[in-house]
Write a protein that binds this DNA or RNA. Structure first.
Lengths: 175, 175
DNA sequence: TATCGTATGTTATAAAGTAACAGTCAAGTT
DNA sequence: AACTTGACTGTTACTTTATAACATACGATA
């Protein structure tokens, strides 16, 4: 697992911004996040059933954005159903409950690194290595809210995706 | 044309923010924007060919987000090709050259209201009336750039989409 | 007028997403 | 225990969105 995100770090971003772009042993993130998801489910009376849990694990293990059909393929290989709704329903559950994000631009999904924090993250999509990283973006959310309010629009959700080059690919001269 | 965007205005947003949500005679916007597109094409040595031009006109006339196949249907009805690539190529040209925007969340396209301004707009998508409005959002772009820079990420493009309720739908108690 | 590049058109197919209904199962009800 | 209910999983069948690959047209220019 995880072949695509082993890229060298070149700068020290704030907090965990850009984690997916950096070399790291992400077994540290998987276990903790599954445990956190269990907690959340218990707190909120949600059912993190086997398919849902496994779908989340798959997203965490890959540590990148996966298409619904990629997730489906893995689920089917493990004895779950192999029809699209199986994957879409599990992924929709995860997204609705803040355990995963949908990347609109890629028609793909990735595990949320801060489940339950009610954060409004922004995702960065590297066009060279195709990796995707989530970063906190409260100022962005605030700016979006400001612009929307000026237009009389009540924001209920946002999609904020930046496309470009991650630090590793820039360092490698992908520019 | 334009059945879907005749909703009552309830507040006076800054600039033209939320124009699509307000009652207006948009013939005023269409002609000028086509002229502007012609200028841009001339300035930059681009060819605003008949299909491309007509695709832009269709987006302007509808004044809402249209799926590629909706545009295709209209193009085909006017004697252009009726196969998907005909629409996708024209729309891609318009998007690449700043004359239209792709709304990732809706898999749809809409005419740009400020072609050539090199603005980084944000779009607001009303879940009740399905209309979509573009609004300038420099502070959002700045915030995105800030968060990205902190992560060592070089932004080349952004997708900023707000989902929620427009002022008209809120006033109608759609909440 | 040959040819070169750009644009348009077509065939065919891939990729993404959903509606509708059937079967399963745990939890509560009688 | 038998029944009912509601949430979840699974399936069939289909729609919508998108692209690769190749064929044709057409203007500019050498």
């Amino acid at each position: 697992m995880n072949g695509s995100t082993r890229v060298e770090e070149t700068a020290q971003p704030a907090a965990d911004a850009g984690l997916a772009f950096r070399r790291h042993d992400h077994r540290h993130c998987c276990g903790g996040l599954i445990a956190r998801a269990d907690e959340l489910a218990t707190e909120r009376g949600l059912k993190l059933t086997p398919v849902r849990r496994r779908a989340l694990e798959i997203l965490l293990e890959e540590h990148r954005a996966l298409g619904a059909y990629e997730v489906l393929e893995r689920l089917a290989g493990e004895g779950f159903g192999n029809k699209p709704p199986v994957a879409y329903r599990a992924l929709d559950f995860l997204v609705e409950n803040g355990m995963a994000h949908r990347i609109a631009r890629l028609n793909a999904f990735m595990a949320c690194m801060h489940p339950g924090d009610d954060h409004t993250p922004m995702v960065m999509i590297c066009r060279a290595c195709r990796s995707v990283a989530e970063t906190p973006a409260e100022p962005v959310a605030a700016a979006v809210a400001g612009a929307a309010t000026a237009a009389g629009f009540a924001v209920e959700g946002t999609v904020v995706e930046a496309l470009g080059l991650c630090s590793a690919c820039r360092a490698r001269g992908e520019g």
